[in-house]
Design a protein around this nucleic acid. Structure first.
Lengths: 243, 243
DNA sequence: TCTAATCTGGGACAAGCGTACCGTTTTATG
DNA sequence: CATAAAACGGTACGCTTGTCCCAGATTAGA
């Protein structure tokens, strides 16, 4: 049995249990390359998918949970202190897991960061989808408001996300995730515009997403007080332009 | 006018000095580090003024040149390897100057980076101004083309610039430079639009600059092949929207 | 049961970092 | 010339980093 709850092996000096996370369902969603030493991502995925034919998979449960905890910690640290704050030691301490486990589950820091990036993108897209799907009012004013506010939550996390996105400009290994991010935004905006009655093609959608990116970034970085209303103004102008 | 080649001896309005530092990252601040041993950059401005009778000026000349060389090296390294690549040792080696000089001319790495950021922004704005002022054709197509291509040079440098800009979201000491950057872009775009016959207020200008930022960033990071034409398309759409 | 694979975690390593120390050289001024 | 200040530069300290090693615990399959 994979019961580790009352378990012995927890080292003496690691009281930090579960600092901040809200997820137990699918923390280890990874599309990245396989890990070197530890359990590779591919087998982890099919374990989640539920393949009863596979033999001994029960043991990996705890391992998967730990892996997820490490990723969670990496994401949190990225938000708090930026790219440079994601060190093996910081991640391990944050997750309440010994240092060596970080190199066991992720073959290198780069891989850890890459997978954290992927996770961050997934979460952000999910959250955007959720908050934008909740929109029922179809007035252009309301739509502008909603679009302009789509990113107005958890500023540190946004900073981390953009930081990683920018990093993708230098690291080809991150390019795929960066594209997934922009493509995801595009798809979401297209859906929202469509449901709001704007019949627009790819060109129009890109027009809006590009504008939102610029708005978003400037807002996150500079945090000017007038940012909010300005965002509404700009978005409204864009909506008028494509209608 | 004579020494401008390497580095503007600290432009008039940017005393990045800021004794009341806002950093939270640096660990051990042993004691007051004498508030900078080296030559104060702010006083360097008077060196350019034509006052040959001034006594001890020749000594400072070399010092200023070295300081500039260090900043140049920092900018180059930032472009090549990003924020993390700007280390004291790398900068010193790049500039052909001993390591200890870096701490002599800049009281800390943060200050070096901040000043490099300022220099980078100045150069970029200058270059943009120059390339956009050269535009004489006033057709909307040509204008869209020029605006869309305004940033299409020296991709690594752009990456470094954006990286620093993003860093300003975490480091209050960089906020001022970040604003100088966005404000500079705004002013340039306003000037270009004005000369092209677009009578537009601040709202319209911001609409365009925001869009350009989004375009710019995505182009620099993802470097998709279709980026160029897409940029033209998007910018043309924006111009149509404000006319 | 036994055995081999997997997982765990403490510790150590070399490399790189920012920065301070401190004697030496250069310069400006009395 | 003398002397103080400024500029210089070699070197070392203290610390953090990523990664590796290896012995012990746990588990899967025979």
């Amino acid at each position: 049995m994979p019961e580790q709850a009352n378990s012995p092996p927890v080292p003496p000096g690691t009281p930090v249990r579960d600092p901040g996370r809200g997820r137990a369902t699918e923390p280890v969603r990874t599309a990245g390359p396989e890990a070197g030493n530890g359990p590779d991502g591919a087998t982890a995925r099919e374990a989640v998918g539920g393949d009863p034919a596979a033999p001994g998979r029960r043991r990996q449960e705890r391992a998967l949970r730990r892996r997820g905890a490490l990723l969670d910690a990496a994401v949190a640290l990225l938000a708090e202190g930026g790219f440079a704050a994601v060190t093996h030691r910081a991640v391990a301490q944050r997750a309440g897991i010994p240092l060596a486990a970080t190199t066991y589950y992720f073959s290198s820091r780069d891989e850890l960061v890459a997978q954290a990036f992927g996770l961050l993108v997934d979460r952000e897209l999910t959250q955007m989808r959720a908050s934008l799907n909740a929109m029922r009012d179809r007035s252009p004013e309301r739509l502008a408001q909603v679009l302009a506010d789509a990113y107005a939550h958890d500023r540190p996390r946004q900073l981390g996300l953009w930081e990683l996105y920018l990093q993708a400009g230098r690291d080809p290994a991150l390019q795929g995730i960066a594209r997934k991010w922009t493509d995801g935004c595009e798809e979401i905006v297209a859906s929202v515009l469509g449901r709001a009655g704007y019949a627009c093609g790819r060109s129009e959608v890109r027009f809006v997403t590009t504008l939102l990116s610029g708005l978003w970034l400037e807002d996150v970085v500079e945090a000017r007080p007038e940012g909010r209303e300005r965002a509404r103004d700009v978005v409204a102008r864009a909506l008028k332009a494509i209608s």
